[in-house]
Design a protein around this nucleic acid. Sequence first.
DNA 1: GAATTAGTAACAGATTTGGTTACAAATGTA
DNA 2: TACATTTGTAACCAAATCTGTTACTAATTC
Lengths: 149, 149
Amino acid sequence: MNTRFAVATHILAYLAHAQGQPVSSEVLASSVGTHPVVVRRLMSSLREAGLVQSQRGAGGGTILARPPADITLLDVFRAMRESDPDIFQVGSTNPNAQCDLGGVMQATLEDMFGPAIEAMRAALAGITVAQVMQELAKRLPGACPGAAG
Amino acid sequence: MNTRFAVATHILAYLAHAQGQPVSSEVLASSVGTHPVVVRRLMSSLREAGLVQSQRGAGGGTILARPPADITLLDVFRAMRESDPDIFQVGSTNPNAQCDLGGVMQATLEDMFGPAIEAMRAALAGITVAQVMQELAKRLPGACPGAAG
DNA sequence: GAATTAGTAACAGATTTGGTTACAAATGTA
DNA sequence: TACATTTGTAACCAAATCTGTTACTAATTC
């Protein structure tokens, strides 16, 4: 899900840069360096999460559903988690049934992990797509004529 | 790596509970609910990370290489990362070569992710195996006679 | 020398992932 | 209406990964 998260953020930054102009999956795929269907597949998650809106047909494409400053990396992260719901869920295998250490271990780890996960969430929630776009713009001083990628 | 992390922590808590008595991979596997070879495989990482020491032969097994209070979940996390070095590395696919957005995007995301990762690391570093063991003991009031699992 | 235990290679099965093709549905345009 | 464009989605393949397992070697104790 590394790549999914990176690609999703890439896409959102691109859409932010497009300022409301619909962008096709083909253009996005070209920028990201993947197949348009991969982009559309990923877009499904972003759409379900309410981060983007798509329109079919000629001249169609995808736009941001909210201002870039109102979309945080935590939103993106959550959107990606839809299809991968337990990244941070401490996985238990099939522990000894005679004693309940397995279940207790899982619950314990989840509890002890809690603060770590919360810390990460808080940090992610502090970064917006607008910030990512700005940071990108800083590092790409006109290198890509007319497009974010 | 969810399960690997959980199993590793499970093992370390067990070893902490054993208080210096070597524990065989068979016993650990039984507690975790997996195959002894899986345990030994995982133990390789823990050994390389300097968290445990093993001894072959009759009466052999594995013991903690340090006091449980000196082993944090961050240590465990790092040990697991050995074989999975880029969990937090923002993966780039194969972005458009014409403009360098791909590389810039990766670098940017890594930078913006940095604080989030640091926050998580700090939280993990604040939890020791001794604490996990204590927490487990609290929740297992004598349920498992003579062993942690 | 026998028994026990770790270390490790090798393999099978299941799952996941990314890329691809294919096609239906929607939408704008001539 | 007919056509081109674009999304939505299913299906499939190849590659990678992970877990469990077998098998064997090396080390250590008795």
